[in-house]
């Protein structure tokens, strides 16, 4: 079965391209365009993966991720952060908040799909998954 992926990104064209790419991989995709809407949608949509932009209106990606990790329901949710070149300090902050991986803008489609695939729980790829699930340990803050 396909994975369910939530995209938190306020740039509509990035969302459109990600929808197209992930759709071609067989995943179902929903999106929110501000940080404040993420938590509520996580609870209703129950995604297998969150793709999270750092710079979101209403609530920054940092705050979103902090809340994701604090919530019992979503604390183990795999999170792929969209970061921007030249903002390495942001990556460190996101790593401290246990983001699972980063994709730097501008990204290549192939790299993004590879990272998404690597983060998805095996059962969503194997075709048996039903419920939102977690991966093992999120990335720790002392990563290289």
């Amino acid at each position: 079965m396909a994975a369910r992926i939530l995209i938190a990104e306020d740039e509509p064209y990035i969302v459109e391209s990600l929808r197209f790419l992930l759709g071609r991989e067989g995943h179902s995709v929903e999106s929110v365009n501000d940080g404040a809407a993420v938590q509520a949608r996580l609870e209703t949509y129950k995604p297998d993966l969150l793709i999270l932009d750092i710079m979101l209106p209403e609530m920054t990606g940092f705050e979103v991720l902090r809340r994701v990790r604090e919530s019992e329901i979503t604390k183990a949710l795999p999170v792929l952060v969209l970061s921007a070149k030249g903002q390495e300090s942001d990556q460190q902050r996101m790593a401290d908040l246990a983001a699972n991986d980063f994709v730097m803008k501008p990204f290549s489609n192939r790299d993004l799909i590879n990272r998404v695939t690597a983060l998805l729980p095996a059962k969503t790829l194997a075709g048996s998954g039903q419920a939102p699930a977690a991966v093992e340990a999120p990335m720790s803050s002392d990563r290289e």
Binding site: E11, Y13, F20, N109
Partner: peptide, 21 residues
């Protein structure tokens, strides 16, 4: 400037992504 930089890189991302598609 951070915000603008993010906007620039996001626009570059869409261009690159759609060009690759």
């Amino acid at each position: 400037l951070r915000e603008l930089s993010h906007a620039v890189l996001t626009q570059i991302s869409s261009i690159r992504s759609f060009a690759e598609i």
